[in-house]
Design a protein around this nucleic acid. Structure first.
Lengths: 199, 199, 199, 199
DNA sequence: CATGAATGAGGGTTCATTCAT
DNA sequence: AATGAATGAACCCTCATTCAT
């Protein structure tokens, strides 16, 4: 009844994570059942609980990995070379990372609203992301490439500007054109869309 | 056993909707139970099913009302008077409408991911919202107050720019400063934030 | 799918309690499953949880009823008529009440050790029983029919004297002879068994 | 992977038994898990099953040891020297043996009701204990220090008299005063408590 | 003998929905 | 329409036991 382990614990864990990610992405957190996950992973139910304490826990692990994946593509900007291309490259990489349908679905529609603990994770993620953007903008201000003024809200707006097209694409089961989005975002950042007489 | 109805069917329906909205906003779709809703409404379980075919259905009705509420604050722009203030006013009203904690929670974190039908509703909502913004932008182009070019993505970006700060505020159980957000959004639209090689 | 209730809620509750009592008595707390109980009661699983919040809860209710049953057979002793026969009658009734195989099994072997809350119930039961006996003994002292001295331990010993034969009989699936036990207990109380240097 | 055994098989078995006894005493049979036992013993799960065929089996072994421990303190009474002090000493030693919280909990609240096999063990234990007491009483009758008549029930009553105070103390997490209990039991045996005109 | 990952039957519980009254 | 007891599928999780290494 007890098959020998053909995988190391880490591999099994990874395989469960991968299965869970797939199942959560397809069915959403609530409709995904542990049964579905173990079936996808090809292990028995009990095995699941040898690696994760609960369905909630594996979901948190999945989301955590995702956030890490997204965050990891951002590279520190070198102020000694032209800023703009670096910023563009960062945005581009984030868009590409988030454009994966699984990532988009999980991060944008499933992560929120599970429970308080989950919301805290998300809060923290957005807090960190926003802070990062804000810092970048402030450095830009010092360099004179960003207009002066408070940039807290601007950071959130910038985030939303990127997120919303991806979210809508995800909702419609299509992928955004990353280049077009980068272009659009950069256009918005550098000049807005209105031509109604400046401030 | 069957109490005489003290409300008209429509009133009962409205009262259930209101109770459901409250319960869904507080607990989220999945944690909200029909029990909670009927308790909040002060009716028996069976009564619920005389007015709505399912929990799913009442949620859809709640979300529908919400979307309607939000959409209804937008006023047609009159091209014979200055555009900008009208646009600002619209944005401002949308922000105010969406800033209500119940609305924000329901629309931004609960509505998505329930099931395919629900996603379709949301898809439709964003499609309509985006289309509306896009139309406005195109009209702006004709009037020469919006820079030329494709504005499909821009519309989504604009939506995200507004939504994200409200979403993050909702996640942190606080409300955005509507005026600051309007100012920020308008600033972004009219000139972006970057000063890199502008005209 | 939802049959009309053929029983009043109280009747259904009683029927579940009775089924539970039977099942717990036969299988013990841990081996009894809610499935078994509802099967015995002839209702669906969900119905069980409409009447009791948990397996634990219905067990507590069963034990509570049992304790009440046992306690209720004790009659206040009238000091104006001969004491001894009244005491004997009380002991006799208790023995008879507890001699029922279900009662014995549940009270003596299943009630203890379920969890802290359960132990507290039992503690309270024995505390009350002991206190009652102690009070009776103290009244006897005032009347001069009980030898002087502390009677706290004596009360517990008296309880044990009655309980142990019943418990052993229960273990062996037989019933004690109530009359013989009464006789024995009364003999013990009135003169002990030893004849070693007594007066 | 297979660590060299640092203990002889017997030592390992003893160490598992000791760990099991501790765990069973603290958590009770049902809440004790094999995991807890092997953790306490510091061995792997598989090792457990090299020494005991099942959780049930190690529990039986624990109880067996306990019964043996208790039984072993009883010394054969020498009829050539005064009986009473020897009887008292035996009772005293039994009380002391059983007063250990682990012993009391395991023997009085956990041993009963696990399964038929377990009940048989317990049955046998009480049968043996009762028989021993009965034999002692019968010898007492021959010596004229025990009142005549059937002593089968008396033996059980005597057992209960001792057990109940210890059981109640165990339930309340306190220890009985062995001396007081011996005194009480002996008082009961030698003269009862009632003064209502003996036979 | 030791190890510990894997197993899977089984248990308690929830809750959307039904329908006789 | 209103009621609310009854339903039962579905879910998450536990844990004694096995066996390849």
């Amino acid at each position: 009844m007890a098959r020998a382990p053909s995988l190391t614990p880490d591999e099994r864990r990874a395989s469960l994570l991968s299965a869970a990610r797939k199942v959560f992405a397809i069915r959403g957190y609530h409709s995904a059942s542990v049964s579905l996950i173990v079936e996808e992973a090809g292990v028995a139910r009990g095995t699941f609980y040898n690696h994760f304490t609960s369905k909630r826990a594996i979901f948190a692990a999945v989301i955590d990995d995702l956030m890490e994946e997204v965050a990891s593509v951002i590279e520190i900007i070198d102020v000694n070379v032209p800023i703009a291309p670096q910023a563009v490259a960062n945005i581009r990489r984030v868009i590409l990372a988030v454009t994966d349908p699984e990532v988009a679905r999980l991060l944008f529609t499933e992560a929120a609203g599970i429970d308080e603990q989950g919301d805290e994770m998300l809060r923290e993620f957005y807090r960190a992301a926003t802070a990062r953007i804000q810092t970048a903008l402030e450095r830009g201000q010092q360099l004179g490439v960003v207009r002066p003024g408070s940039v807290g809200l601007a950071a959130q707006c910038l985030l939303g500007m990127i997120k919303q097209p991806i979210f809508q694409a995800s909702l419609e089961s299509r992928q955004v054109n990353a280049d077009a989005l980068v272009f659009e975002v950069f256009g918005m950042l550098s000049g807005g869309v209105l031509r109604v007489g400046g401030p």
